[in-house]
Design a protein around this nucleic acid. Structure first.
Lengths: 226, 226
DNA sequence: CATTGACCAGATCAGGCTTTTCGGTCATAA
DNA sequence: TTATGACCGAAAAGCCTGATCTGGTCAATG
């Protein structure tokens, strides 16, 4: 028996994904050619088509890979944190992890430079980010860990656009008045900590456990996806 | 004696500003020619240069005019509201008014379609929006109407990028998952209402008065600017 | 003296053409 | 059977040239 997932995960596929991730991150979807990817991965161009049906699929696989990385990053930041649970930390870690990953950041801000023409064709990826968040919030509400007088879907949407503003908006603000990313992140955390808190707080330890479990589960799902 | 402000406010200038506002809003800075503006205003092209030193100045004057309109709009929404004071209302009104004015909305989101090449040259306008907000927040903090454990400047920045996310981010979210603007606005209001509240709330009536006075003052300043 | 609009120079655009690039295929090689 | 890379067609990128547009000026007008 083997761990679940498609038949085999040939190393060639990993090398292709790694090479593609690097090139896509640097040059973007449109300006990265499959010839370059093949060369960087040390295989022939034809080999790409033995692993992926087309360029879009390769790119999407890279994004899934990066989403898994992001989730793992988030999880690690969370676990390293001794605070049992608070929205401050949850969002600080989440948005810091988003900001650290160009693909996830680009996904959130619809960065034309990275996603290029892929943007017009694909919407599944964009939808996923929000529904994952909505699901998480719904669970937190059920658990009494988050205010429930606002629908989870609305909160998920709101947090998404706020995150968008935080990572994209920074560039829209004149340098002189910009606030260091960490400062704005902490301030947002403080804001949400109060803004999202339930009327009477629950067992924070249990919430932390649930949260970690959910994130780990999402990460596993993303990784199996490749 | 005459009300303060530059010497005279010839009607020609008003007509030019009105015509320019309409054309710029429809076609954007780059694709609106001064010939068209002159024709729409019923004056000659040369007359534009008797009022404004160049196209940039005309455009900037239009933006100031629109900022004054926006502030008046905000003020009216506020006054029509019987709730003495709450951040819910304050931000709902503010962002609703922003969203209703293409120039202010475009200023906030750095809309290339309206601001075009003007964007690269100008930063003063962008800076102003934030510093006005920072000043307002500072006063609210002094008055004990807003939490003061976060610097006013940081809060102003944060609210700005959140607003950016709210009006710009909407377009970045797949239709299917989008939440009606009013819903997200109300949710944000609820969030900030708790998130920004001071430890012990003050006289809300007084806060409302102060706020109205400050906004009115800002509006007057903008209007005198033309 | 206030106002006009013909005029200018520089930038932009249109379009027709050639060259290059690139996703995807498949006969061939190992 | 697995993997390669030369090859294909379509699309994009350059490129050139002439036409057009447009911000800004200023002699002429009333």
């Amino acid at each position: 028996m083997r761990s679940p997932g498609p038949p085999t995960r040939p190393p060639r596929r990993r090398r292709l994904l790694a090479a593609a991730a690097e090139l896509f991150a640097r040059w973007g979807f449109d300006k990265t050619s499959l010839d370059e990817v093949a060369r960087a991965a040390g295989v022939s161009k034809g080999a790409i088509y033995l692993e992926f049906p087309n360029k879009d699929a390769l790119f999407k696989a890279v994004v899934y890979r990066e989403l898994a990385h992001y989730t793992r990053d988030w999880l690690q930041r969370f676990e390293r944190d001794d605070d049992p649970f608070s929205f401050v930390r949850m969002f600080q870690h989440s948005i810091a992890a988003i900001n650290a990953n160009p693909f996830v950041k680009g996904l959130m801000t619809r960065d034309q430079r990275i996603y290029g023409s892929f943007l017009q064709r694909e919407s599944e990826l964009f939808a996923m980010a929000i529904s994952l968040r909505a699901e998480l919030f719904g669970r937190l509400q059920e658990l009494g860990a988050m205010r429930d007088d606002i629908p989870a879907a609305t909160l998920a949407y709101l947090i998404s656009v706020i995150g968008h503003g935080l990572v994209a908006g920074a560039e829209a603000i004149p340098e002189r008045q910009r606030v260091p990313f960490e400062d704005s992140l902490r301030a947002l955390g403080l804001l949400l900590d109060r803004g999202l808190a339930p009327p009477r707080p629950r067992n924070r330890k249990a919430v932390r456990e649930l949260l970690l479990a959910m994130v780990a589960q999402a990460q596993a799902a993303l990784e199996s996806h490749e």
